[in-house]
């Protein structure tokens, strides 16, 4: 069963009121692989993620997960199958303490169905997980309401929320956006570890240099179409990619 690709998209399309946000995108993802999705603003990256995770219903095309057709699946069912995603604009549960934010994914049907998922003190597990993400256990940060956390911590919380679901496929939507250099440097090893643990990873990112440290392969989108695919350095040498991506290309080579 596991011999095929873990995720396969065939001719995915999405129209928003006459605008084609995603236009016949196809790709495959093997188990344990890390994939980057890049492209200029408005090129349909986030919509593609929303299509895969079921938050938006595709106008055309099919998605297969572990050989199963999951086109138009409800988001919570996608999670049950082992997909976890982060949001580009994370909105944690502001009035709850940070660790309570994690109790919710830990209480999720997905986690409870895993081996041993029903046992243990969820609060304690949540604090462990947060410590792992760089929330100092002995400080008051994990106990603060999520609404007062600085942006970097909110992003880490978002990552912790994904990992609490023990997913097979992790999809991170612009995790690094809005983080400072040092914050990124702190989070990057965590992501490298996810990849090392054999989890399959999709990252949508604008910070190309950091992205290329992690991913094996990238897909470049422009105006909803896939214009290139391959190893990072090969793709960035592609003239069409250079043209569409001029601004960031300068940053990349710097």
């Amino acid at each position: 069963m596991d011999s095929g690709p873990i995720l396969r998209a065939v001719d995915l399309c999405k129209d928003f009121g006459g605008i084609r946000a995603v236009d016949r995108v196809s790709f495959e993802l093997q188990k344990g692989e890390t994939l980057g999705i890049i492209g200029p603003n408005g090129s349909g990256k986030s919509t593609l993620i929303n299509l895969i995770t079921g938050f938006v219903k595709p106008s055309g095309g099919r998605i297969f997960y572990q050989g199963r057709d999951i086109t138009g699946i409800a988001p919570h069912k996608a999670v049950m199958l082992g997909m976890a995603r982060s949001f580009q604009m994370p909105r944690p549960f502001y009035n709850m303490p940070a660790y309570k934010n994690l109790v919710i994914p830990l209480f999720s049907p997905r986690t409870r169905r895993l081996k041993g998922g029903r046992y243990g003190d969820r609060d304690e597990v949540a604090i462990h997980l947060l410590e792992d993400m760089g929330f100092e256990r002995d400080s008051n940060v994990p106990y603060q309401p999520a609404g007062v956390l600085p942006h970097g911590y909110v992003k880490r919380l978002e990552l912790a929320r994904c990992l609490a679901l023990e997913p097979d496929l992790v999809i991170l939507d612009e995790l690094f956006s809005g983080m400072s250099m040092s914050e990124v440097a702190g989070v990057l090893p965590l992501i490298e570890r996810i990849a090392d643990e054999g989890k399959t990873l999709i990252m949508v990112e604008h910070r190309l240099r950091e992205l290329f440290r992690v991913v094996d392969r990238v897909i470049v989108l422009n105006f909803g179409r896939k214009i290139a695919e391959g190893a990072p350095d090969v793709v960035m040498a592609n003239p069409e990619v250079k043209e569409s991506y001029l601004g960031s290309e300068v940053e990349f080579s710097a």
């Binding site: 049907p109 997905r110 929320r161």
Partner: peptide, 8 residues
């Protein structure tokens, strides 16, 4: 939205 993304 976040609750949905947590699988509920």
């Amino acid at each position: 939205r976040s609750v949905m993304a947590a699988g509920f």
